[in-house]
Design a protein around this nucleic acid. Structure first.
Length: 371
DNA sequence: TAGCCGTGGCC
DNA sequence: TGGCCAAGGCT
């Protein structure tokens, strides 16, 4: 009894998977996104696009992607370049460990795979910066391997389709979603199916205002049947973000700015930033004069407090108090002894700098505040 | 394993 | 305005 009913269930599940995948594939071919610059490209470009697209929207990625492949058109070129240069082309995109891992992985590929992007799922997964879902996406798109992905789009889609309650970041919930993703995977056309799942999530089964009436799998969607689409997926409970303060010391010598390189796995790791104090300091010239003489060995000519602003990270808010400090420096090369460098404003804006620093440098250049 | 790691667009 | 969160991975 048990055996035959189990076979029946398996048959039903298999038939359902076939129906589901067929609907997704048909929909993708008719309505899916096409013409994205990495679609149909080589494994290197597909890899790059998948990394850039982690936690980042397509529209944001496209200009970065185009500039990046223009400058680093193949893996050997990327591997031969410095991390600094790679970060400069990543500057503004955020999550800079992605760029450091990408660069590191390119050198591993040169050493361990003769410069050719690996074809085996386990080899792809072993590269830094590539987890289970990204490895599956590359395998499916570049090599047409039968691997299931589970990115944000697919999580949202499946959480609704099966009305799975609970935050998808939770391990138990995520395990259930992986199970569903694997079970639905078709035998053929995995690349089209995978792109279809992503595109359906991105354009129809959106976080807010999903267009269920245009969804190809609406007939099987449990959340739609139960009228709880808007409640799923369960949002994460978020604590209030802690707030921190920092003073940016924008030391200016003529048209040069003093920057220091953040090292290690810290916020903005590998990027150039103005020296910071993790408190708000008085902007009066005497306080700043004493501080700058002591720590930077420079004579302060003038101090101007620029407007404060807020920069929000994933896990804290940063109130930035910028001080534009005009100084006199005799030997600009001496800064190198302490891991700092004087850079011209134009050069600095081409360097690896985080977004708020770029914003400030542009402001300084535009307004030409006088000494 | 939960916290860490950016940025910008949306409502 | 501010909270939310995107084609996640690492430790």
């Amino acid at each position: 009894m048990l055996g035959s009913s189990s076979v029946l269930v398996n048959n039903q599940e298999s038939l359902h998977s076939e129906w589901f995948a067929g609907r997704i594939i048909d929909w993708q071919q008719q309505y899916g996104r096409c013409g994205l610059p990495w679609q149909g490209a080589d494994a290197y470009r597909i890899w790059l696009s998948e990394i850039m697209l982690q936690q980042t929207r397509v529209a944001t990625v496209i200009p970065y992607y185009l500039r990046f492949v223009d400058r680093f058109p193949a893996i050997p070129v990327l591997a031969a370049e410095s991390e600094e240069m790679v970060l400069a082309y990543w500057s503004g995109l955020g999550y800079y460990s992605r760029a450091r891992n990408l660069h590191s992985a390119s050198r591993i590929i040169m050493q361990q795979h003769n410069g050719e992007f690996p074809h085996q799922f386990k080899d792809i997964l072993a590269l830094p910066g590539i987890g289970r879902s990204t490895a599956a996406a590359i395998s499916a798109f570049a090599f047409h391997e039968r691997c299931a992905i589970l990115d944000g789009n697919v999580k949202r889609l499946l959480a609704r389709y099966y009305a799975i309650d609970g935050y998808p970041g939770e391990q138990k919930i995520e395990a259930m979603l992986w199970e569903k993703a694997e079970a639905l995977l078709p035998e053929k056309n995995v690349a089209i199916y995978t792109q279809g799942m992503m595109d359906l999530g991105a354009t129809i089964c959106t976080r807010s205002k999903p267009e269920c009436c245009r969804c190809p799998v609406q007939a099987g969607c449990v959340a739609h049947r139960n009228g709880c689409v808007a409640l799923l997926p369960t949002p994460r409970l978020r604590k209030k973000l802690p707030e921190r303060k920092t003073t940016f010391l924008l030391l200016r010598n003529g048209s040069d700015i003093l920057l220091e390189k953040h090292t290690g796995r810290v916020i903005w790791g590998g990027l150039w930033c103005p020296p910071q104090l993790d408190i708000q300091i008085p902007g009066d010239i005497e306080s700043v004069r004493v501080y700058c003489r002591q720590f930077f060995n420079v004579e302060v000519i003038n101090v101007l407090a620029l407007p404060k602003f807020l920069h929000t990270f994933t896990h804290f808010k940063l109130h930035i108090f910028p001080l534009l400090i005009d100084v006199a420096v005799e030997d600009t090369l001496k800064a190198q002894e302490t891991g700092m460098a004087w850079m011209g404003l134009d050069d600095a804006q081409c360097a690896a700098i985080p977004s708020p620093v770029r914003k400030l440098l542009q402001e300084i250049q535009k307004n030409c505040w006088e000494s």
